[in-house]
């Protein structure tokens, strides 16, 4: 099979054969095949770029079918609360070219909404469900956004930056109260170290 860069218009299944392309060739192939020109080399075997939210699905489809990135490694979500945005980072791996493409998408935090890519990649289902559970982003078209890990959770999506797990812990749990065996060594005794208002729980 010829190098895919020579046949940009035809869609073909990704091939495990053929010579792997160099990073620059891949970047230009991505630009040519997907029409999105923000991609650049970040480090060896890492390419990154920005995609508009509404263009992600077609970009991902083209990246898979025409450039050969057939493995969805992960979808990561970052809560940029100060900017009022979620950043979704889609990590695609090419088995043939041994490169990773990270496509960044910014969506408004309220309402966090994004088109699903489960129709392209089954594994996206887990990642989207996970992001929905932990950040509250709704993936349009994903039919399985049921709670998975936090099935009994009543609070807000906990990975959001405005949820403080320490506050939660303080509100819901108490620290273990010890009667240390070395109490007599402590100036004023260990419990003397505590303040007024304590001891009511005993």
């Amino acid at each position: 099979m010829n190098a895919q860069t020579q046949a940009p218009t035809t869609s073909r299944p990704p091939a495990a054969t053929g010579a792997p392309r160099m990073t620059e060739a891949l970047v230009s192939a991505i630009t040519a095949e997907t029409g999105i020109a923000t991609f650049r080399t970040k480090s060896p075997r890492r390419i990154e770029g920005t995609v508009q939210a509404d263009a992600l699905h077609s970009f991902a489809a083209a990246l898979r079918s025409r450039v050969g990135f057939e493995h969805l490694s992960a979808i990561s979500c970052v809560d940029w609360i100060a900017e009022g945005e979620f950043e979704l980072v889609y990590h695609f791996w090419s088995y043939r070219d041994s490169h990773l493409v990270s496509a960044r998408v910014r969506i408004p935090r309220e309402p966090g909404s994004m088109a699903t890519i489960t129709d392209l990649w089954l594994p996206a289902s887990f990642f989207e469900r996970d992001i929905h559970e932990f950040y509250g982003v709704v993936f349009q078209g994903n039919t399985d956004l049921e709670r998975y890990i936090l099935s009994d959770w009543k609070g807000p999506p906990p990975m959001r930056k405005d949820f403080s797990s320490r506050d939660f812990a303080h509100e819901h749990f108490t620290f273990k109260d010890y009667e240390p065996t070395w109490d007599e060594l402590i100036d004023g005794g260990y419990h003397g170290q505590k303040r007024q208002g304590e001891g009511s729980d005993e």
Binding site: H170, E171, F175, Q193, K194, R195, Q196, G197, E198
Partner: peptide, 11 residues
């Protein structure tokens, strides 16, 4: 109030 009370308990 809860936070202050917790702090007073000298953890």
């Amino acid at each position: 109030l809860g936070i202050v009370e917790a702090l007073l308990s000298g953890r």
